[in-house]
Design a protein around this nucleic acid. Sequence first.
DNA 1: GAGTGGTCTAGACCACTCA
DNA 2: GAGTGGTCTAGACCACTCC
Lengths: 232, 232
Amino acid sequence: MKNGRISFRVIKEELARRIAERVWAPGTLIPGEEVLAREFGAARATVNRALQELARSGLVERRRKSGTRVALHPLREARFVIPIVGNEITARGAEYRYRLLSRTIDRPPEVIAARLGLSLSELVLHVRCLHLADGAPYQFEDRWINLTAVPAARQESFETIGPNEWLVTHAPFSDAEFTFMAAAANEEEARLLDVSAGAPLFVGERITWLKEKPITLVRMAHPGTHRMVTRL
Amino acid sequence: MKNGRISFRVIKEELARRIAERVWAPGTLIPGEEVLAREFGAARATVNRALQELARSGLVERRRKSGTRVALHPLREARFVIPIVGNEITARGAEYRYRLLSRTIDRPPEVIAARLGLSLSELVLHVRCLHLADGAPYQFEDRWINLTAVPAARQESFETIGPNEWLVTHAPFSDAEFTFMAAAANEEEARLLDVSAGAPLFVGERITWLKEKPITLVRMAHPGTHRMVTRL
DNA sequence: GAGTGGTCTAGACCACTCA
DNA sequence: GAGTGGTCTAGACCACTCC
């Protein structure tokens, strides 16, 4: 740590404590940055950083002129790391295997074109594959790649490398949208994931863009036993 | 906006652009803060802030002495806002209703005691309730409250106010763990959520603590049509 | 117009890590 | 030991918002 200087972490912790212990009740206007800076013997910038982090985590709400007040509903946010499926599996100490199921180039179905914002005449690469952990089905990946945006994907067979890993190094993105949901396994998913038809699946969907230009849409289905965990 | 001064946002965008457009390929060591500060005509602190934010979103990895390099696997993180169910519903323009199903005080079942780290002799308050959007079942909430930590809950009937809302204003927490999963609806859940038995449910579970002291465990089950969406 | 947060600067020192 | 990021300070000016 440090000598006499006050860290923004210390200030943040202390302010969080006062909020948690109701020294400052929800809705309370807390002292301004100047005042707190004097109280803690720190520069205003230091207090500012502490308060900004508290605001980012939803504990306080800040408005110019009005000041900073304790949030009425601590609408905290949770942060999930979006892992590469292979890493996720090996990180658990399991053996990772990959199997390509199909790879075709065609015009997109209407649903897919609509989701990606493509015209029906643009070509897309459709890849379906399976990720296994210690031999057991872990994730069924169903992916559409916009060949207009990523023409190089045409040359890749995806027989040994998964589309995710390939895209990471060949097609950067600037924006992404994630959706998580539950769904019932259809016949094929049931067979591939080794569950019974109609069984619940945990499904993640991701669309990525590079500056408005759609790159890829992927649907990742896990058996219902899958857990997505985070802590804050 | 600004006059001539360079915002950390501008720097951040520009650096992100260089990474996205492969000016700096994954794994590349990018120039140090001093150099970038000179290039952009900004203070080092400004460049530092831009780089820190890029690091937080996973685009670059920073290490003292080594420097900053473009991440090999842009393991970005997604941020989900954890809403209060009532707000979530009214935010969609739907009418929110709440119904208490049961409220009992007892010793915890073993599973619950284990999850919360309680002894089997400590009393817990078990509340089950339903949240409705425009009259349709939206979420079935099954909650356990640690009465040792929140004795005041004894006095609350939860007949008109949901446990979540009550806890927000009466029992602060410092830590939380979220788990999301898919599950098949049992008979009761099916009836309550108006789906067929065995239908997929989207389930969120949350445990909260106030400094190591367990506060509450809640299981929130939604019909399979529920979507959890985030964008980055 | 005035009050509060938002950001930038220039300089300093520290802490971590690599060689 | 030395290089790079991490943080703090003191001061300044700006931007947003309320009155």
